[in-house]
Design a binder for these strands. Structure first.
Lengths: 182, 182
DNA sequence: ACCATAGCGGACTGGCGGTCCGTTTGCGAG
DNA sequence: CTCGCAAACGGACCGCCAGTCCGCTATGGT
């Protein structure tokens, strides 16, 4: 990788990160804006990231490492309900801390969050936990339902709920769903 | 209202309805397409419906009457859990029967389903039911969570699940969430 | 029959994501 | 140090779309 290429790539990531941090609506940030802010031509932008979604994913990738770490840390020990709760809590925390970016990611590329690689992972993990708690019956659907409860636009919609209210809600939800039923 | 205006309005609704019925991706249908299919100028389109979202809402309004009826019918009687289940089931049925339209509605106008009038209604209804079943604690959040589980793009994502699988999932979910807990 | 005016249509605008291609630049080979 | 060439660059350009504008048309009350 040529030196200038690497430098430009970083410049773009940094600029985009700044822009997404400052914005309130992800699709107010155009690719031209990013290119300009990075002091780089549009062609360069697309050469490095292929398209808008690619850029967003790259941004997310950087930030997401912390998330992955937190999530990994929340895996071991305790009851299924506790693990599920920690997972969801961590997701909400992350999405509240990275509002615009996660909104952008979940709405990008004509809309579906379900086309995201990481969704598959989380769903698999959660399915396993649900299945462990109450058997395989409907476990996959319940995992989808739990994840749907922390979708970024719902988080956005309830943006002025205090942490405790979120916590109470998530706790009630996971406890209910993971109770062995009957 | 002048006769030609009324006629054009109907023509547009009919054409748009046909197009959305046939499409697989809502935003492949442009306003120009609709105007052309209706044999009407673009100006007319915007005069009647103000903007894309307005058109989609109008379409939805027509179809939605059946939905409202089904939902109203599902209100009385039985346990909270049964009522909630019937509500969600009806929503899923409707969304599966009107895939593209509901997708369009929930993603229109930069994304949030939560800006829809009908969402407020359903959420209020469901909140009441949840509250009745297990008290007011977190009832609002749980209602959001239940509705999130039937969001149109999740329905779309699981489009090839058979009815029984959906049914099992919804049943498990509502039973769990509405169990009085403790 | 007349005509004020509600309604019409489609050319036009602005802004977007994405492409193309002539120019510049980094850098390994000689 | 120099040369050559591929890699990388940048910004003009394209096609598309939602939404606007305004000169024209047709309706329906008088």
């Amino acid at each position: 990788m040529r030196a200038d290429a690497a430098r430009n790539r970083e410049a773009v990531l940094a600029a985009a990160d700044r822009l997404f941090e400052a914005a309130t609506d992800p699709d107010r940030i155009s690719m031209d804006d990013v290119a300009a802010a990075a002091g780089v031509g549009k062609g360069t932008l697309f050469r490095h990231f292929r398209d808008r979604l690619g850029l967003i994913r790259a941004l997310y990738g950087a930030r997401g490492e912390q998330l992955q770490a937190s999530l990994a840390a929340s895996l071991p020990g305790d009851s299924p309900a506790d693990r599920a709760l920690r997972l969801l809590r961590e997701l909400v925390r992350f999405k509240r801390a990275n509002r615009v970016l996660t909104l952008a990611l979940e709405n990008a590329g004509s809309g579906s969050p379900y086309r995201n690689e990481s969704y598959e992972e989380w769903h698999a993990t959660l399915s396993a936990i649900v299945s462990e708690a109450r058997g395989p019956e409907s476990a996959e659907f319940l995992a989808h339902a739990l994840l749907a409860a922390v979708r970024s636009d719902l988080v956005e919609h309830l943006r002025d709920w205090p942490d405790e209210r979120w916590d109470a809600g998530l706790t009630a939800l996971t406890r209910s769903v993971l109770a062995s039923g009957r």
